[in-house]
Design a protein around this nucleic acid. Structure first.
Lengths: 213, 213
DNA sequence: TATTGTGAAGCCTTTCACAGCA
DNA sequence: TGCTGTGAAAGGCTTCACAATA
């Protein structure tokens, strides 16, 4: 099928969720998954699952389903996560330092190769006690230099909300390609830099709406 | 307008993001916001913004825009966050303990009133050093008892992926109403319990897709 | 037989364009 | 005048239903 058609945003979101489901099934030693199994786990329609894959090719076997290992590779390739992505975390507070040792990032080829804070000295004591200092904490004024030297393409923002936009600007200045902002203040960037604002409270707000209504 | 119509899921998601934008504007001493300002910040069409609000009432003033303070209250009421929600966090590792002291939860009326771990003794040392033990860490075998005694309605899962579904089951058993799963393995629950799986890597996957394609 | 891949239908959401109003 | 509120049009996504096929 048309490999170059315009892909619905919702499809891209679901691919990521199919991938997690496939990993879950694989961990239970399953080798093959049907669209209806995936649909059940991901809470979508089976035809939706098939159509989502069909945007990119024919990955299944009629009468059988999808080979889990192969399908995972296809999805990773489609998403662009069939290679390592090098990441900087800015703001090594409680959340930031949790990310530095977050195992699922490693498993998924996301490598945190730099960590920045406005007060590295204060932070280092905390961190090394807890997690054995997995990556050196640098002063944020070295952001541009280090992002360029280490070929970092993505920045994760975990500073307080008042500082978030400032840090976003510095990341843009450092020629970062994408920003994941986990602080509770929305940030923006020029069009050539992709930004995702991910607010924890939004997930709760959404949950609460459906609990209330 | 029809206060009881079926609301698009996307609208519910956007309400949460409008709220964050309004808080941002308020912090800059703005009193009034137009649909086009909100649209620009949230990356949507101005008509979309107006239509989203119109599902629930007429909140604006023609020729002027929306009163920020009032609109915030309307949105909070719509989402159901115009009251306190009591939360339990299960799994006090790096991520879990970051959430225990996450300031935006408090600001938004989300109260973490219980924290559970499978090894509270080990955890307590770590935590109290760092954050002054904001809430007592209890053994997870007291989950049901404490959730009921403290009127907890929402559970946040931050245990390792292998334990996530087990904890979800325990939360269901404890008559929780909603679950936010932050572990990288999807969990499910009976229909009467609302579940949101929020994977950090999905936000990165999505970013990477648009960086690649 | 079981399940994929897919055209077409149906449905839902977004956007347009303008009437209504402060 | 300027911006909201909204009916109608356009567009896009999801689901159906079935042909294709391992």
């Amino acid at each position: 099928m048309a490999k170059y058609a315009k892909i619905p945003e919702a499809t891209v979101r679901r691919l990521s969720s199919y991938l997690k489901c496939l990993e879950e099934l694989e961990s239970k030693d399953e080798k093959v998954a049907s669209s209806s199994i995936l649909a059940t786990i991901c809470n979508v329609n089976p035809a939706q699952v098939r159509k989502d894959f069909a945007y990119f090719g024919e990955f299944g076997i009629r009468g059988m389903g999808y080979n889990i290992k192969e399908l995972k590779e296809h999805i990773k390739k489609i998403l662009g996560i069939d290679r390592e992505w090098r990441i900087a975390v800015v703001g090594i507070g409680n959340l930031g330092s949790a990310l530095l040792v977050y195992k699922d990032f490693l498993k998924q080829n996301y490598r945190i190769v730099a960590a920045f804070d406005i007060d590295p000295v204060k932070v280092i004591g905390n961190i090394s006690e807890r997690v054995g200092r997995p990556v050196e904490i640098l002063h944020v004024n070295r952001l541009k230099e280090v992002v360029e030297a280490r070929n970092i393409e993505i920045g994760i923002i975990t500073v307080p909300p008042t500082e978030a936009q400032k840090v976003a600007n510095q990341l843009v200045e450092a020629n970062i390609k994408g920003i994941l902002n986990l602080s509770p203040a929305p940030v923006s960037a020029p069009e050539h830099v992709k930004v995702r604002n991910l607010f924890f409270t939004s997930a709760l707000d959404n949950l609460v709406y459906y609990l209330t209504n």
